[in-house]
Structures are given as structure tokens and as C-alpha cells.
Design a protein around this nucleic acid. Sequence first.
RNA 1: GUCUCGAUAGCUCAGCUGGAUAGAGCAACGGUCUUCUAAACCGUGGGCCGUGGGUUCGAAUCCCACUCGAGGCACCA
Length: 563
Amino acid sequence: MNEQELVVQALLPVLKDHLDAAAIAKLIEVPKTSDLGDYAFPTFTLAKIFRQAPQQIAADLAPKINADNFEKVQAVGPYINFFLDKAQFSHQLLQTILQQAEHYGDANLGQQGQVPIDMSSPNIAKPISMGHLRSTVIGNSLANILTKVGYKPVKINHLGDWGTQFGKLIVGYKKWGSEAAVKADPITNLLKYYVKFHQEDQAHPELDDEARDWFVKLEAGDDEAIKLWTWFRKVSLQEFMKIYDMLDIQFDSYKGEAFYNDKMAEVVQMLEDKKLLKKSQGAEIVDLSAYNLNPALIKKSDGATLYITRDLAAAIYRKRTYHFVQSLYVVGNEQRDHFKQLKAVLKEMGFDWADDIHHIPFGLITENGKKLSTRQGRVILLENVLNDAVDLAHKQIDAKNPDLANKDQVANDVGIGAVVFHDLKNERLNNFDFNLEDVVRFEGETGPYVQYTNARAQSILRKAGVDLKQQTDYTLADRSAWDVLKQLAEFPDMIIRASKEYEPSVIAKYALRLAKNFNKYYANTKVLVADAEKPARLAMVASVSQVLTQSLALLGVHAPKEM
RNA sequence: GUCUCGAUAGCUCAGCUGGAUAGAGCAACGGUCUUCUAAACCGUGGGCCGUGGGUUCGAAUCCCACUCGAGGCACCA
């Protein structure tokens, strides 16, 4: 029986004439601070029935409640506060966590259903920016969280490896580039050509015609065009892999836009068969006015297909391939309408699984309040940010723990952990203005703070020299440990909530709160003192480390044992 | 113009399904390393929760209007 149920059962006998168990459960709340108890029952709603002041009702009812299962039951103002039995609670909780270890908090909401996650998806020949980082780390964390609750995620890197920009790129390369330069530093130089193209085409509009011609050649399978495209794609992907390795993120599929080139004709045919296509201003559209949306542009007036056509093909391909129970797209909030359109067209096509498609939007990263633009060369390169963070972590280690073993590994874990955690700690939809100092901060509400807390816990366990598995009694009635214990018990609920809201920040916030409570605890309480509760204290330290490590892992952040 | 998202301390943000004095971190100031790593802990100051209405016993939280900011609004993705 969970703790809240105990409270309901205690209240039921004195309230059964007025409220049933479900109604009582709905009213129960958790007080802000634990000196007001662990659960509280507000008496406001009873005021009308009893025609008495809520304070009076609370004072009258409290003594009538059977408090056997509690430390105490007490009326405070208009509330009846319940205090849990700390000894019993701590014993059960710590035993559970130590037994279940990394499986503590597992759930089976997903029943092994597959969930493709469209994430990261950088564009070939362009650098991975801070914006891609968001999609990448949010997608990766959601994959971890969904796995924890019983789904089978499929991480798909839907590479931007097709489109008119390749025409521009080929023109730029042929005019200003060289094989040697691309080989030496592929992305930097390819980006240079692309940016230069957009500068030059202001004054020389004929460049746009050349670019269009090259893209037409590419689509037609022209040897030179294909050769260049294949080469650009290969060297770009190699560069991307460096970053994914740094982040320790792996994908299950790299099927990008080009993969769907030969799958769009079928989609167009299906739309025609279902009589959904209409001519409008020379283009083929699906009218979505019934959904209060702009029409979906399936074919341009020149006959070429568009973004949404490709995404329709991809959605259908994923349904056929993975038989998904949900299909997620971790893509910026500015594409909200696009995904509404995508779902609407699929609905019109008669696919009821359109409802299982979820756009997971996230806020924009700006610099000085302005949107970044690759075309203008205004980008924040993720690789630089990660390298800066790792360098800074190195300096910290040299200053604070110069004798540490595995310095390089720890510097990586900490530096990259800081960047990833910073991205995940706030609600997805918040915009954030990029500020390097903020991103690589190691103090306060940061990833390294959580990592450090865990390292300290590990340090205590190393020095304890006790085998926790030999132990049977985990009773810890110490008041100062109470907030930590209660919070450890919340972990499973946090995972469920994060999975339902597709919100990694729930886990990040939880980890910060747990770290803070634990820091406070061990700053004031000596763990390694030989007394009756020492084994239980160590069990709690081990549990905290277990849960912090798990939380960080769900976010895709490593937890070094020393730092 | 229209739709979406947002507005809480100097800055960055929490505040779960409305409930007990609105909380953190950073920044500022002041304490704590012969004792489990000071990437930590403790303390001080700082807020008509954008504005105006409404619903409710009770609103930062729900509803309406307005102001301001960001983003989207068919032949880019």
C-alpha cells in the first residue's frame, strides 16, 4: 500500500458519511515543508457541510483519527496534517532501492511498443549548431526515459541530405572551393561556400539559375553531381560522428531526406486516388480549411515535391517498418503548423494512427535576442562549445583535484555534462539566449553540481568499508535524513511524469533537488560514525548515488565516481 | 492582420491537477576547510507574480480583454 492510501484509509471512518475514498484522495495534498507533515487534508470543503469554521473542523476531527500507522496526526489551522512513521518508511524504501538497483523506477507503460524518434537531423555540409544540440539531447533523453517505462524507442537521425541547397553548394564549391580545402576541414569550408553563395547572389542573380540547374542534374542522376553529393555527405557525416561520440549518443537509423526520394510518387498517387489533391495557383495542394490550417503544398508549380510530401512518405514508411505505437518528432516550435498539417493530411488519407504522431517542440536558441541564421553565417558551433567546456573542466580539475586519475575522461564527463544538463534543465519550450558563461558553469544549479554530489556520495561509500548486502535493517528515523528519504521515494513518479509530458527537465529538476537535499544532509550529519544507524545511513548514501546516477543517465549525462 | 508560445527578485528560472508566510541558482555582502573532495554548506538583503476585470471560501495557477516580447502564416526545411 502506498503512503497516500494510508491517509485515505485513516480519514475514511470519520468522513464516510460525507465523502468517499476517491473524493478524499483527490483532496489530499503534500505540504510545502515537512514540518507541516507529509500529507495534509484541507477542511475547507467540509465547512459548508458542517456549517463550521474549517479550523474548528480540523481540530474536532484530528483526535478521532486512528493514528496507529503514523508518527502523529495533528490539526494545524484548517488542515489535518499526517506524519509518516519514519522508521518503517525508511526501512522499506531503502530495501527496495538497494534490491532493485538500476531498475528502481522501472515501469511498463509502453509494453514494448516501438517509438521512432525523429531527432538531431543536421543538414549535410552545415555545422551542428546549438539548435541541433537541443533536438539531439532532448530526443536522446526521451529515448532513455521511454525505455525506462517500457517502450522501445528507435532513434532516427533524419539527415538533411537533399534539397535545393545542394545546387547552391555545388556552384559554390566549383567557383570558390578546392578538394584540398574540403578534405582538410570539410564543414568549415563547405559552409564558407554556402555563405559566400548567399552573399554573391544578391548582386548576381544568375547564380540562382546555376544552382537550380545543378539540383536538377542531381535529381536526374548526373554523374558529377552525384559524385559531389556523395562526397559532401560522407565527409559531413564523419564530422558529425565526432560530435555524437563526444556526446555519447548513438542512432538506430540515419535514413535522411534522400532516402525518401523514390517513395514520394506513391504518396502522391495515394492522395490522387483518394481525391484529396487540388490545383491551386499552379500547385497541387490538399485543402485543410476544415482543420483551420493552411493548405498542404504537395507539389510545386514546377512539379517538384516539398518538405511535407517527404514527411508524409517518412511517416508512412515508419508506420510500415516499425508498427509504432507512437511516433515522435523532436523539432523546433516554429514548425508547429507543419506538423499539424502533416497529421491532418494523414487523417484525411484515412490513417487513424495519425493520432499517435506527436510533435515534441522546443524553444529557440537566440544570440543577443535574435534568431540565428546559417545563411548569414551566424551560427554557434556546438563543437567549439563542447571543447571550451571540456577545457574548462580540465582547469577545474587541475585546481581542485590535481591527483585525480582518468583526468581526461572526467573532464569530458563534466564539461559535456554541463552543456547537456544546461540544455535539459529548463522546460523544453522556453527560448534561451545563448551565453557561453552560463552554459559552461559548474556551480549552482548545474550538471557538475549533481555529478559532484554523486562523487561525494561515492567517496563516503569507498571509505565506509561495509558490505551493504550483508545488512537487513535499514531503519533511519533521523529527522535530518527525512527530506532525502522522501525525495528518493518520488523518483518513480518523476519518471512517469517525464515520460507522459515528454519533458526531460522533470528529471533534471528532480536531480537538482535531490542533490541539494543530500548536500545539506551530509554537510550537517557525519555519516561515518559508528552508531546504531550507521548502516542505514550508508544505505541511504548508496541509494542517493544510485538514483542520482540513474537520473543523469536518463538525461544522457555521465556520472563519474570521482571528480 | 491572424495563429502559437511566453511575461514571477538586478539576471536566469521553479512553482505538479487552484490551497497554509511566493521558492532556487547566479550576482552582492558576511560566515564555514587539523574531521566523509569548499565544484560544497550556512546566513543577510532583494518580489502590487505584465495591466485590468471575472469565477471561487481561496488565484502566480482557471476564464475574458488589453500591453509587451519571440516565432509561424502555400511553391525553403
